[in-house]
Design a binder for these strands. Structure first.
Length: 250
DNA sequence: AATCCCACCAACCGCCACCTC
DNA sequence: CGAGGTGGCGGTTGGTGGGAT
């Protein structure tokens, strides 16, 4: 029997698989779900998190952008040196290189290499590569600083999200969401350490009651009757509305 | 001021390795 | 042992913004 691609598997369950840039709401849903229930199964997760995305897409978004320990901003000279050194050692094994650069993702390193370093490889030596990067990097930092100054003045949304028509979300907006979620957990107790180390689950919280299950908070479908809460979506809608109310009132 | 070009980067795609049954 | 499911990896694409003309 031919293998069924994950997209097709999901399309039977989901009305429509969304592609392209992630909206702030989608980010918040994914982040909130993982913070609350951990990572248990990427392919099933979008369904329970109320996301019309493939598991792969969710995983990528989490790994490359939403994960709390992801480091943003320009590469430091030390990081550039490591990338160059590791590339010479390992070649295009980006994940292996990323393992040597805490906070940097393989995707980010790959992009960085293709945009900054690739053209230099085999043409120029390391010193010239680094000097070229340094000049560009300084220019970029200056630009970013200027942007941030502008941003601090112009952005005024109480929940930190830019409520403009643009559906793309910035890193700064995501960080604001982190702050929001830390302050206003919908559960009675704070979620201990999950901001740094989300729980990796061994079972589906949907099934509940499994001995090896490590999640700290009960999945909405086990709190309530599954017929009334058959997805995380409904629960999230209730919770986020509550969060929004608190934040706007504050 | 308008248009074009290019750099950047988030996200997608296809493939493969590993695991489970 | 083989089939199927899942996650991870690397290559590539497409949208966007900024600089050049």
């Amino acid at each position: 029997m031919p293998r069924v691609p994950p997209q097709q598997q999901l399309s039977t369950n989901m009305k429509e698989i969304k592609k392209g840039a992630w909206s702030p709401e989608e980010d918040q849903k994914l982040k909130y779900y993982i913070m609350r229930y951990g990572i248990w199964n990427w392919s099933q997760m979008p369904k329970f998190a109320g996301l019309s995305r493939t598991g792969k897409s969710c995983r990528l978004r989490w790994m490359n952008y939403l994960r709390p320990d992801v480091k943003r901003g320009p590469f430091t000279m030390e990081e550039v040196e490591i990338v160059i050194k590791m590339y010479q050692e390992l070649g295009n094994r980006w994940s292996a290189i990323a393992a040597r650069l805490p906070g940097r993702t393989d995707n980010e390193i790959k992009n960085f290499f293709h945009t900054h370093l690739k053209k230099h490889f085999g043409v120029k030596n390391d010193a010239s590569m680094k000097s070229t990067y340094k000049a560009r990097s300084n220019k970029k930092v200056l630009k970013k600083t200027k942007e941030n100054e502008m941003t601090n003045v112009e952005k005024g949304s109480p929940n930190g999200c830019n409520s403009s028509e643009n559906s793309n979300i910035t890193w700064e907006e995501n960080q604001m969401m982190d702050v929001s979620m830390n302050c206003y957990n919908v559960v009675d107790q704070p979620i201990i350490n999950t901001e740094i180390n989300p729980v990796i689950l061994e079972s589906n919280p949907e099934t509940g009651g499994v001995a090896t299950c490590q999640f700290e908070y009960t999945h909405p479908c086990t709190i309530f009757d599954c017929s009334s809460f058959d997805s995380f979506d409904q629960y999230f809608d209730m919770s986020s509305t509550w969060i929004d109310d608190v934040l706007w009132d504050a």
